[in-house]
């Protein structure tokens, strides 16, 4: 792979940095995924992005491509966007809609349950027409399932398979994390079978989603279910039962945010060569990302009683981006 020359086919990078996991893809000009990566964020979005970049670089070692544009999405999109010199920084709802409707042009409803977020996107003629996100509570999301798995002493990855063996799912109140936990403890003490509790949890996640995020939305087929929790067959099965319809799960479903942001970068076209940063030569330099030291610092602005917390991103010693200021007084000059 030639990183810093003009040779090779053009390709685009997309990274989705969520609170729990970080996903990355590289697509070619024909929008085919040619490299993919999925790993835990571990509370360090910058580090996770570096690891994703390294993994992608490894997969592309023998490919004759150069990456001429990048997009980021997810909760740390801005930070990582500044880090890798992204051309497109987009929120995850849009990125998911873009990615999924590209792969499934006929899709009408996208269900998504991620680490801490869940959302529903309604699509008509390939364009999102309505969407909703979960409110504050994380009940029924990936992190909720992980913590319940830990309580039951089961790997969360096993959840789906175990759930499918149950014939009598337990009835679990999963509207709120706190209630769900006490209910779960109670059911364990009373001696419910493990698979019935797990199946009950999966069912609760699905019905809770439909009652909360999906309330008032017309859920039309074809339905695509994605996000980390879509890997859980138990939840997929519960959705199909509750909706009475087939629910599609794409093998790359967990990568849709990254794929969508790569597509958006493709649409935006090649970057213009910058003065510095990973795109300094016009093509993305995987090594440069590893070599630079990225740091974020929180500064409390003291210029008014609002005391905004301003996040500053440094590449080596240069400040490359900052945000969080609610007024011009807190604006920080970038190099």
């Amino acid at each position: 792979m030639s990183a810093a020359t003009t040779a090779g086919k053009e390709a685009y990078l997309g990274i989705d940095i969520g609170s729990i996991s970080t996903k990355g893809v590289v697509i070619d000009e024909g929008a085919h995924i040619i490299a993919r990566s999925y790993l835990w964020t571990e509370g360090d979005p910058a580090g996770a992005a570096k690891r994703v970049a390294a993994e992608l670089a490894g997969q592309l070692e023998d490919a004759d491509v150069r990456i001429v544009g990048a997009g980021t999405t997810g909760s740390a999109r801005r930070l990582v966007g500044a880090m890798i010199g992204a051309t497109v920084v987009k929120n995850e709802i849009t990125a998911h809609a873009v990615g999924t409707t590209y792969l499934h042009p006929e899709v009408r409803t996208i269900l998504e349950i991620g680490g801490q977020d869940s959302k529903i996107i309604c699509v008509e003629d390939g364009i999102a027409t309505d969407y909703a996100m979960n409110t504050l509570c994380a009940a029924g999301t990936g992190s909720f399932l992980s913590s319940q798995a830990a309580r039951l002493g089961v790997e969360v990855e096993e959840f789906g398979k175990i759930a499918l063996t149950s014939h009598k799912p337990a009835n679990i109140a999963a509207r709120c994390t706190v209630f769900a936990e006490s209910d779960l403890v109670h059911k364990i003490q009373v001696g419910y079978a493990r698979e019935d509790i797990i199946a009950g949890l999966c069912r609760a996640v699905a019905s809770n989603y439909l009652n909360n995020v999906g309330k008032g939305k017309r859920i039309c087929a074809p339905i695509v279910f994605q996000g980390g929790v879509s890997k859980n067959e138990g939840v997929v099965h519960s959705f199909e039962e509750l909706l009475g319809q087939e629910v599609l799960v794409d093998p790359d479903g967990h990568l849709m945010g990254a794929f969508g942001s790569a597509l958006l970068a493709l649409k935006a076209g090649p970057v213009e060569a910058g003065e510095d940063g990973p795109f300094a030569t016009g093509a993305f330099d995987f090594q440069a990302v590893q070599d630079f030291a990225f740091k974020t610092r929180e500064v409390e602005c003291a210029k008014c009683p609002n005391h905004c917390e301003i996040i500053c991103v440094y590449r080596d010693k240069d400040i490359i981006d900052s945000w969080g200021n609610r007024c011009e007084k807190g604006a920080i000059k970038h190099t």
Binding site: N91, I93, T94, A97, G126, I127, R326
Partner: peptide, 22 residues
């Protein structure tokens, strides 16, 4: 939170803009 609101508004805007463009 400001960031949570911004994500929702941006997504809403994107959705409307794409719909309009189409």
């Amino acid at each position: 939170s400001d960031t949570g609101l911004m994500t929702r508004l941006e997504a809403f805007y994107d959705m409307l803009a794409m719909k309009k463009e189409a």
